[in-house]
C-alpha cells in the first residue's frame, strides 16, 4: 500500500532533518570540547575541526590562571540571583496587592528596565560608582548587576505570582495575618518554583554577562570569568587550546545548571514573554 510507504518515508525524513539540525547545533560544543582537550603539540599539527589525543594540560593551566575570577563570578551570580529573586518577589507581591493605576505605570517601567540595552547607562553608572567609592570592587560589581537584574527579578516574579489564587491571600488576611506573614508564610512557599526559575535565570544571565564587568572594573582580580575570556581570544601568540579551555571552563557552570535545571530556566524565559503559562 503506497500510502503506508509514504508515511514511513515521511517519518524517516522527519527524524533525519532533526538529527542533521541537532548535529549542526551541537557542532560548536564539539569544537569546544575537542580543542580544549588538545595538547600544545597537537594544536600545531591538527586543524580545529578534527580531534586529537586528549590531554588535560590546557584545562588545568587555564583553571589555575582564572580560579580567582571563577570565584568572583560564583559570588556575584549567587548573590545577584538570590537578591533579585527575593527582593523581586517582594515587589511582585506589592504589584499583586496594589489595585491602583500607578501599578500599571510601575510595571511598565520595570518592563522597560528589564529590556533596556544596558550599555547605554555605562557612563552614568561609572560616574556613580566612582562617586560612592565602589568602582572596581566586588560590592560595586554586585550593585551594578542588581541595577539591571532586580527589575528582571521583579518582572519574572510578578508573572509567577499572577497565578496565585487570590483566595489564598484573602483567607490569610481573614485569618488575621499582616503583610509580612502573608508574604513569608503563604506567598513565598507557594511561589517557590517561580522563585527557583527566577534564581536560575538571573544566575545564568549574570554569570554570562560581559559588559557590566568590562565597564565597572579595571583590575584583573576583580574581574569575572566571562570578562577574563577576552584575554584568551585568538591572535598572535595565543594557542587555540588555551582559548577553548578558557571558554570551556567558563561555560561548565551555566551548562551544567542548564542540563540539570533547564526546565526552570525555560520557565523563566517563557515567563518573560508568555505570562504565567510557562
Amino acid at each position: 500500500m503506497p500510502n503506508h510507504y509514504l508515511r514511513i518515508t515521511r517519518r524517516i525524513a522527519h527524524h533525519i532533518v532533526l538529527i542533521v539540525l541537532a548535529i549542526i547545533w551541537l557542532f560548536p560544543v564539539y569544537v569546544l570540547v575537542i580543542n580544549s582537550l588538545k595538547s600544545t603539540a597537537s594544536v600545531l599539527t591538527t586543524p580545529i575541526l578534527f580531534p586529537a589525543a586528549s590531554s588535560l594540560t590546557a584545562i588545568i593551566t587555564v583553571s589555575r590562571a582564572i580560579s580567582g575570577t571563577l570565584l568572583n563570578s560564583l559570588i556575584i551570580a549567587i548573590s545577584v540571583a538570590a537578591v533579585s529573586a527575593i527582593i523581586g518577589s517582594m515587589a511582585a507581591y506589592y504589584f499583586y496587592r496594589a489595585t491602583s493605576k500607578i501599578n500599571d505605570v510601575i510595571f511598565t517601567i520595570i518592563a522597560i528596565a528589564t529590556f533596556i540595552p544596558y550599555e547605554v547607562t555605562a557612563v552614568p553608572l561609572i560616574k556613580l560608582l566612582i562617586n560612592i567609592h565602589i568602582f572596581d570592587s566586588l560590592p560595586g560589581l554586585i550593585f551594578s548587576f542588581l541595577i539591571f537584574f532586580l527589575p528582571t527579578g521583579a518582572l519574572l516574579m510578578s508573572i509567577f505570582l499572577a497565578v496565585l489564587p487570590r483566595s489564598a491571600i484573602e483567607s490569610a488576611r481573614i485569618d488575621g495575618a499582616n503583610n509580612w506573614t502573608i508574604f513569608s508564610k503563604v506567598v513565598f512557599p507557594l511561589t517557590y518554583p517561580g522563585l527557583v526559575s527566577t534564581f536560575i535565570f538571573v544566575f545564568i544571565e549574570s554569570w554570562n554577562n560581559f559588559f557590566i564587568p568590562l565597564m565597572t572594573t579595571n583590575t584583573p582580580n576583580i574581574s569575572t570569568v566571562s570578562l577574563v575570556l577576552q584575554s584568551y581570544t585568538g591572535g598572535y601568540g595565543v594557542l587555540y587550546n588555551d582559548s577553548f579551555a578558557a571558554a570551556a571552563v567558563a561555560s561548565v557552570v551555566p551548562l551544567v545548571i542548564f542540563v540539570l535545571l533547564g526546565r526552570y530556566f525555560v520557565r523563566g524565559l517563557m515567563a518573560m514573554g508568555n505570562g504565567a503559562k510557562g
Binding site: W207, N208, F210, S226, L229, A247, S251, L255, V266, L269
Partner: peptide, 12 residues
Amino acid sequence: LFLYPLAIALSA
C-alpha cells in the same frame, strides 16, 4: 539541544 547556546556566555 536548540536552546542550550543561550546558557553559554556570549564571550565564550
